[in-house]
Amino acid sequence: MENSRRKFLKQGLLGMLAVGASSLPFQSVIAENPSNPSKKRKKKINAQRVVLLSLDGICVEGFRKARTPHLDSLLVQGTLSLETRVVMPSVTLPNWTSHLTGSGPELHGVVDNGWEINKFKLPAIETDADGYYPSVFEVLKEHKPDLKTAFYYNWANLIYPYNKKYLDEISFLENDAYVPNIEKAFSFIKNNRNSPSLVFLYSVHTDHTGHKHKWMSPEYIRSIEEADVEIGKFLEKMKSEGLTEDTHFLFLTDHGGINYGHGGVSEDEMIVPWGITGPGIKGGMTMQEPNNTVNTAAVILHLFGVEKPLCWTGEVPESLFK
């Protein structure tokens, strides 16, 4: 009975988003196509802060089934995609690198989970003086030196593709721990409330649960629900400090899964949820434009009013914006 109720509630949320999407005239989507010369440029948003709520290994079916009231209530205020494609291979490091560098593995060169600055199979097409492909943190710091950046993670390899000198705060936790990083992220945001900021808040425990117990297992679903509880506490603290109204939140993941793993090209591995909410973002919408993980960094730069590097291939889906 409880599972049926959860499914009903989640389908209700998705139904609300679908209704919102259906209210958008087809002509307006066409008009927002960047190739349409009559398209009006969007007003600059000038974001104050962007927070990336990042859970590893979330498949669409798992997101639908899990009871996630806090993510649901957040995302219903913005735009949600349930058809975002990840890059190949559908494994962790290439995809998070693609999220945060606006490019696929064929450009940034992170083609597997074993990439290190002096250990790689394919060189990046462009690097900074230290050998790193330009990340969203680096580009923002170069254009907005006063902007604060933070990177919270619990899978050791995740930090490798990014030049740490462009990160103001870094926190790594062992053994899949993640709650202390959520608390650190809140403190960082609160202490830098008057400065623009970009916060990457990540946990791998959902992916590891899938590997251990199987994707869509009760344990896997529970791991998503447990993360939602902690995200809810974080959002409540943000609200109590008056920090939510001028914050853009993105809900991100890197791949789905099937049975005990991922890395293939099945829909369960290659198609994931992706969501955004905040000032200037359309609310109650299901995203109709094609979307890919390489677009994330381009969207973040757009929120801060910064042009993307020429070497990036990610695009800004115009239908996200009011």
Rank of each mutant, 00 (worst) to 15 (best):
V204E: 11
L173A: 13
N291Q: 14
D112I: 13
Q48D: 09
F321A: 06
K282L: 15
L235Y: 01
I271E: 07
H248P: 02
P34V: 09
S81R: 01
I45R: 00
P69L: 02
S35Y: 15
P161A: 06
N118W: 09
N259E: 15
T244D: 00
P317W: 00
F249E: 01
H108A: 03
K44S: 10
E116Y: 13
N33M: 12
D146M: 06
Q288D: 15
P180K: 01
S81Y: 04
N181W: 08
T293V: 05
T206I: 08
T296R: 02
E183C: 10
G264D: 06
S103A: 05
E225G: 05
G263V: 09
P89W: 05
G15R: 09
V179A: 05
I271T: 10
E2K: 15
L303Y: 00
V87C: 15
A185I: 02
L167K: 08
E106M: 10
L13A: 06
S195C: 15
H248R: 03
L107D: 11
G20I: 02
L303C: 07
E183I: 07
L140M: 04
V111G: 12
W96P: 07
K121N: 12
K165T: 08
E32M: 15
I224W: 01
E226W: 12
L55R: 02
G278C: 00
E318N: 15
V91N: 03
